[in-house]
Amino acid sequence: MSEINVQRRQFLKMSMGVAAVSIAPGIFLFDMAHGKADANKVRWGMLIETANCAEGCNDCVTACNTENGLSDGVSSTDSQWIRKIEIKDISTGRETSLPMMCQHCEHPPCVDVCPTGASFKRADGIVLVDKHLCIGCRYCMMACPYKARSFVHEPLQNQNPDVPRGRGTVESCTMCVHRIDQGQQPACAVACPNKSILFGNLNDPDSEIATRIRTVASAQVRADLGLNPGVRYQGL
């Protein structure tokens, strides 16, 4: 092999190395910016066993209201972060009871439409409203297929110091993010007397929730929309 050839080879190797070194941080930063670095480790989610969810039982709703300082009111202007829905299959007559709340989608429409970026998805998959940025345009409420969001119609007082809420902004289930950050479970999951709400990390293959959704049939609500919600339902 001639000397020129060796030199050329070395030059090629070196320039590829340089190229790789200069691109790598860019790719790394891109992943960081899109929350991908953590995304593989944690995605919080819930599995709801509808067979155990008793009709008329409202314990998850009460627990949520107490934890987050909601008023318990059910008028059309009151906030409801979680609600019980009774559904009946029109063609078969089968009845089911289940809790409905923010489904913490992987591709949340509320985040896409929010003009200021107040609606956002945390790296661990929780969809939140940054109330410092929310201007109260309510476009996210138009966009949400689950009717998960509420608008605060009145000035509030005496909020829970852990759960800031205020007039003129939109809010929804936070999966009790203040509890999750302290290593606790969401209030509704703790309160359910029938253990129908299983909370856990969908992305940890050894977690209870991941094992369960691998072995039993579960469904997403409005799966046809392709939003990949983090809340799944069993026995729907």
Binding site: V111, P115, T116, G117, I135, V152, G168
Partner: peptide
């Protein structure tokens, strides 16, 4: 009609590029 019209400056300084509103 916004819930927080006093924050209009937020709308002017924070753009979410996927939002039709923005």
């Amino acid at each position: 009609d916004l819930g927080r019209p006093d924050r209009i400056i937020v709308a002017a300084t924070n753009y979410n590029l996927t939002s039709v509103f923005a």
